[in-house]
Design a protein around this nucleic acid. Structure first.
Lengths: 245, 245
DNA sequence: GTTTCTTATATTGTCGACAATATATACTAA
DNA sequence: TTAGTATATATTGTCGACAATATAAGAAAC
């Protein structure tokens, strides 16, 4: 509804194809719903009613279904034939599964980034990191993670790998799921300062063009994050008394 | 066309939902096209004409488009808005990209399999492996590679990780692309015997419940495979005289 | 002869309607 | 009252038709 692309308005003047842009309704609705999901506007586990959402976004069921298909492709919704789609609810096991995948993929990304990133890219990464550092001092660390600054850092390294497949897997699929989880569980990390230091070490390794070390550090970084979450889940299970298998 | 699920035929007798099966036309046609692509029946790079394929499979364009969407999700086709879809053509770079991703993911899979696979699963894996061994002796390894027996082994270990996300990524996406590539380039591996031995070492590590070692060996295995391919690509480039960047 | 613009054709994207399936409601029987 | 069954309703899956865009064919200008 908002943001009508500058070219789509008005009449096409020539017969040259829209070499770029060319946003389709299905794609637009897909992005909107995805945003709504990771923000929590559409609650976890809730049913996706096609007629309802179609009316909400003012489109027909056709493109809407295509949008749902894409959401399913990145695991943000699960769909049962003839029944419908629900927003994914992430079990503890699924969350940990994702961390193992991240450990493997981002470790590789760091290794590749150490050889693929340009010097200027590394400089900019350092800049970003020091910016985060000052934010942490100011706001006692909460802002850093809350505002998804942590993700920025990881994104940069992933992109730095210059491996298209790796980038797609992590940035288009896993990281949206991470954000969804973050909403679902609403956890605050207690290890912000330590995580920040780990980030610094990783950048150092990349700057030294030491791929082996960069991978080790990145894997250790993500592994620590996973163990932290495992710990929190354990405490949570004790607190509620409910036994999570 | 074949394999009509046992329940879908006949009249529904009760109002219980089809808790299982429930195959939709879109899903069916998706699988058929996917098979056709990895077999090479639909050539690499060829355009996917919606009206044409709809007639071929005897369905409307609706479910066909959904099928194409799923093919796009696993990168078997690339789609440009308002233009259409083409079967993916894998560049050398893309192929190598995939190998890096495989190295990371399957390495992790082997690590997890070492702790997650049951003893009987490991026994069955050994069985499969020795079967492959005898096949290789008989037919000098070509059949082994051609019949994709190699993939069986990797599948087992991936499944053995018991990590749903890992399994999905590898088995539903990357491996179909690998098969497509195998058709596109029609390469024969020269390192079947060596690969077989590497497989044995990997199983040993898993049987010893040594995840660290299993990961190292699996990564080395895939890395060797990649380097072999890099070598072949280099030779190919020299032979044709065309310079691949 | 080449290039540019115009027209025509084909394909993709979108829509509304119908069919098939699942879920909810009402009813009957024990 | 409860279990089971039959009806009614709602939702999903599929279809054919229309609109928008891109590609191909043809005409005009240089």
């Amino acid at each position: 509804m908002e943001s009508p692309s500058a070219f789509s308005s008005g009449v096409r003047r020539s017969h040259q194809p829209d070499t770029e842009g060319a946003i389709t309704i299905a794609e637009s609705v897909f992005r909107q719903i995805r945003q709504a999901i990771v923000e929590g506007s559409i609650p976890t586990g809730s049913k996706i009613s096609e007629p309802e959402l179609a009316k909400t976004y003012g489109v027909s069921r056709g493109p809407l279904r295509e949008a749902i298909g894409r959401l399913e492709a990145c695991s943000l919704v699960v769909r049962k034939p003839n029944v419908g789609a629900r927003v994914m609810t992430m079990s503890n096991e699924q969350l940990l599964d994702i961390y193992y995948v991240r450990e493997a993929l981002e470790g590789m990304a760091a290794r590749l980034a150490a050889t693929q990133m340009s010097d200027t890219e590394i400089d900019k990464l350092r800049e970003l990191l020091s910016m985060h550092g000052s934010e942490i001092e100011q706001e006692h660390g909460q802002a850093y993670f809350q505002k998804e600054g942590d993700l920025d850092f990881h994104y940069r390294i992933i992109k730095g790998s210059k491996n298209e497949r790796l980038i797609n897997l992590l940035c288009n699929d896993l990281y949206y799921q991470m954000r969804l989880y973050r909403y679902q569980f609403g956890m605050r990390s207690r290890r912000v300062p330590r995580a920040y230091n780990e980030h610094e070490y990783i950048v150092d390794a990349i700057a030294n063009r030491d791929g082996e070390m960069a991978e080790l550090l990145m894997r250790s970084h993500i592994r620590s994050s996973r163990k932290n979450i495992e710990q929190m889940l354990k405490e949570k299970a004790l607190a509620t008394g409910s036994n999570a298998s």
